[in-house]
Amino acid sequence: MSSFHPINPKPFLKTLINKQVVVRLKWNKTEYRGILVSIDNYMNLQLEQTTEISEGVEEEIGEIFIRCNNVLFVRDAIVKKGDAEENGDNNGVDKEVAMNE
């Protein structure tokens, strides 16, 4: 008898569908902010209304497909109260999902 309910990676990712998410890539801290449209079994990602954030430069790039192997983590983009919007380095750490293949 336990009150612990595991939240597994895939069901967790599915709960993020249709929400604003931040996807961090493994390469040079590039991030994508957008609405998660869909995922597949490889955890390839489809985003819409996407903004690319790389070295502090933001660029609107619309609808994108991200190949699974590039992803470091996916997290909910909603910033908790009290956290600064700028630089997602430290906030939301508890929501990060490592997606190693």
Partner: peptide, 17 residues
């Protein structure tokens, strides 16, 4: 934690298709 099975009719590679 609900699984949104309905909105999963599309998958990422469809965007490429």
């Amino acid at each position: 934690m609900s699984l949104q099975t309905e909105s999963q009719s599309q998958e990422p590679l469809d965007l490429i298709r």
